[in-house]
Amino acid sequence: MNTKAVKKRRPFKVWIKSRDGQKVLVMLSFMIIPLLLLFVFTYLPFGEMFGFSFYKMKYTGTRKFVGWDNYLKVFQRKDCFGALKLSLYYMLGSIIQLVLALYLATVLSFKVKCGKLFKGFMFFPYLINGIAIGFIFKFFYTRGFVFDTVLQWCGFNLDNLPYWLRDQRINNFSLVGTSIWRYFGQNMVLFIGAIMSVDSSLYESAMLDGANKFQQFMYIILPSIRTIVMLNVILSITGSLSAFEPPYVITSGANGTGTYFVVMHNIAHTQQKVGLASAMAIILLIIIIIATILQKLFFKYVFRDAEDDDPKAGIRRDKKLARLAKRSVRAAEGR
């Protein structure tokens, strides 16, 4: 647009009052702050972090260029790369969480007594801040406290119960449990939102055809909300790789609960090995990007006909699937 102004040889004052000039003006004035913030607080630190990863350095003092040393160290040190194994626990947890959320969402999407109350109870944990969660669960898991008491109500003997946060066989499961506790309600709300947008006449015709609740779920609900379920699977796998909060606020990574990011946090802030921590961050970022791309490709391959950017095609496809589903249900009934 600038060149246009020059070509026409209009003085700047006239140009700025013209439509084009106004356009540029509004674009500049509306975009400069967000872009500046994005640059200063995201991409500049990202670039710097990339630079740091080639130095042996602390926050203050001299820096020494060491090339790829930090990256090699990440793979060699026992506590760094090995910590990624812990994300398997979190992946397992997120699968449980998604299944649970799907089940509850399906139940709560239909008429249920006190449905709103149940929904509210299950969702509320999502609104609690991280530090409070840390305290709540330190308290919850303490020997003889809340969890043990509840289990004793159910007939367990305290002597047979492990130390939930200290016993290395169980403590990662305990932490994953807190993460499920915190997020299953939120997942559920998302799924309810998606299920609500399913055409309700489909259920009626399926009922007429004699499909039971499980068949309705498999052939009507699940295909219709596939996109959002998929999205959550992708998010939860990348989330598991970068699991941080549960161990950070509850155990600070003690007793073998230090996930990759908790280890990185300690290396960066306690040991002040900034270069090594930066290299760890970059490596994880690369892993996350690869994981995201792989998953996208995987889902694209599995649902080759899914065209997410055309919502109408999605609806048409969903209706088609539902019709197919009805037919197969009918066929099943016929047998």
Partner: peptide, 20 residues
């Protein structure tokens, strides 16, 4: 750019963000 920014791990960025 905004989408990619949401992919960057926030906790990790603090290492260099602190200096800024």
């Amino acid at each position: 750019l905004f989408l990619f920014a949401s992919l960057l791990p926030g906790v990790a960025m603090q290492v260099s963000l602190y200096e800024i």
